[in-house]
Computed example of a mutant assay.
Amino acid sequence: MAPQVVGVVSRRFGDFDGAEDATQEALIAAARRWPEDGVPDEPRAWLVRAASRRLVDAWRSDAARREREARVIAWDVPAADPPDHDDSLTVLFLCCHPLLTPASAIALTLRAVGGLTTAEIAHAFLVPESTLAQRISRAKAQLRQSGDGFRMPSGADRDHRLRSVLHVLYLMFKEGYTSMQGESLHRIELSGEAIRLARLLTERLPDEPEGLGLLALMLLIDARRPARTDTQGDLVPLPEQDRTLWDEALMAEGVSILGRAMAQRAVGEYQLQAAIAAVHDRAATADATDWREICVLYELLEGVTGSAVVTLNRAVAVAMADGPVEGLRVVDEVADRLGGTQRWLSVRGHLLERSGDVDGAAEHLERAAALAVNLSEQRHLVTQVRRLRRLPRP
Rank of each mutant, 00 (worst) to 15 (best):
G306F: 01
V296D: 09
D207S: 12
M172V: 05
L132W: 02
A227Y: 08
S191A: 15
Q145R: 14
D332F: 07
L171Q: 06
R33A: 10
E36S: 08
L89M: 01
R314A: 13
G176K: 09
D84V: 11
W46F: 12
A45M: 04
V56M: 09
T289K: 10
K174P: 00
S137N: 13
P78E: 03
R389N: 04
G211Y: 00
H280L: 13
L381F: 05
L338H: 05
R111G: 06
R387C: 00
R393Q: 06
A315H: 11
G327C: 10
R343W: 09
L185T: 04
A275P: 01
L381G: 04
D222G: 09
V296T: 12
E42Q: 15
R135M: 14
V6Q: 05
R32N: 07
A266D: 13
G115S: 06
Q273C: 00
P239F: 12
V310C: 04
V127F: 09
A223I: 06
G360L: 10
G38E: 05
A198K: 04
D207T: 12
V331A: 13
A51G: 04
S61K: 13
R135V: 05
H97A: 14
I136R: 12
Q232T: 09
L338P: 06
E253M: 01
L200T: 02
D281T: 11
D230L: 03
A31I: 00
D86L: 01
V325H: 13
L219Y: 02
D81W: 09
G323F: 13
H380K: 10
M218R: 01
T285V: 10
G114E: 11
E42M: 08
M152Q: 00
S191D: 15
R66I: 09
F93K: 02
A361C: 09
I221G: 02
A361N: 08
Q264L: 02
G254P: 07
G340H: 08
H167E: 08
V255I: 15
V385P: 06
E189C: 06
V48F: 06
D15Q: 06
D281A: 15
D336E: 11
E240M: 14
L169I: 03
Y298P: 02
A141L: 15
V279G: 07
I106L: 14
Q384W: 02
E366K: 12
E120K: 07
C95L: 05
E299T: 15
G303F: 03
H380W: 15
T202I: 10
A227D: 04
D281W: 05
R314H: 15
T305K: 00
A283N: 11
P239M: 12
L245K: 13
E36Q: 11
S191P: 06
S104G: 12
F150G: 04
D159K: 07
V236D: 08
E326Y: 10
V5S: 05
P153T: 02
S346Y: 13
R243K: 14
